[in-house]
Simulated scan of single mutants.
Amino acid sequence: MPEISRFLGIIVAMFYNDHAPPHFHARYGEHKVEIAIETLAVLAGSFPPRALGLLIEWAAAHRADLMEDWELARVHAELKRIAPLE
């Protein structure tokens, strides 16, 4: 699972050939979550509320970058790194 960003202890990654809808995975300590790119809804897993809020803030700012990486992952191309939350 290629890592595409890392900030404040949160690791964001995306699988190649993953199932729809377009989404990304994140880890924070022992917590794991899948987030839909278009709606920013939690598809699976859970995060502590503060970490989830930071992750959603980051994803909202980088939605176009996330969709670009999703399309790259669909064709097994190298994914682009996305800037961390600042």
Rank of each mutant, 00 (worst) to 15 (best):
A61I: 11
M1W: 10
P22Q: 03
G29W: 07
P49I: 05
I11S: 03
P21A: 04
E78T: 11
A61Q: 15
L72D: 02
G9C: 08
K32Q: 04
E38Q: 10
L52Y: 11
L66M: 07
F24P: 01
F7T: 01
L66N: 04
E86V: 14
F47S: 01
A13T: 11
I4E: 03
H31T: 00
H25N: 08
R74K: 15
G29C: 06
M1L: 12
G29M: 04
V33D: 02
A26M: 13
D69E: 03
D69S: 07
E57G: 07
A44S: 11
L54G: 01
P48F: 09
E71T: 09
H23T: 07
D65P: 00
G53D: 15
I11V: 13
S46H: 07
H31F: 15
L66S: 01
A20F: 11
L43H: 03
I37P: 00
L55D: 02
F47M: 12
I56V: 15
E34W: 13
F15A: 12
R6T: 08
I35D: 00
A60S: 12
D65F: 10
I82N: 02
A60N: 13
S5Y: 07
G53Y: 09
D69P: 00
L43P: 00
E38A: 12
L72I: 08
P48S: 06
E71V: 03
A36W: 10
R50T: 08
A13S: 13
E86H: 09
A77R: 14
A73H: 04
A26Q: 02
N17R: 09
K80E: 05
I10S: 05
S5M: 11
M67W: 14
A20K: 05
W70S: 00
L72M: 12
E86A: 07
D65N: 10
E71L: 09
I11P: 01
H25C: 08
G45N: 03
S5A: 12
L52C: 05
A20S: 07
H25P: 05
E68A: 14
R74W: 14
R74Y: 11
M14I: 14
E30G: 11
K80P: 01
A64N: 04
A51W: 11
V12W: 04
H19P: 06
L55Q: 00
G9Q: 08
V75F: 04
A41M: 12
G45W: 14
E3M: 11
H25T: 01
A64L: 13
A41C: 02
V42I: 15
F47A: 05
L40A: 08
I10E: 11
E71Q: 10
A26I: 04
L72F: 13
A83N: 09
R50A: 12
G9W: 09
F15W: 11
L8A: 10
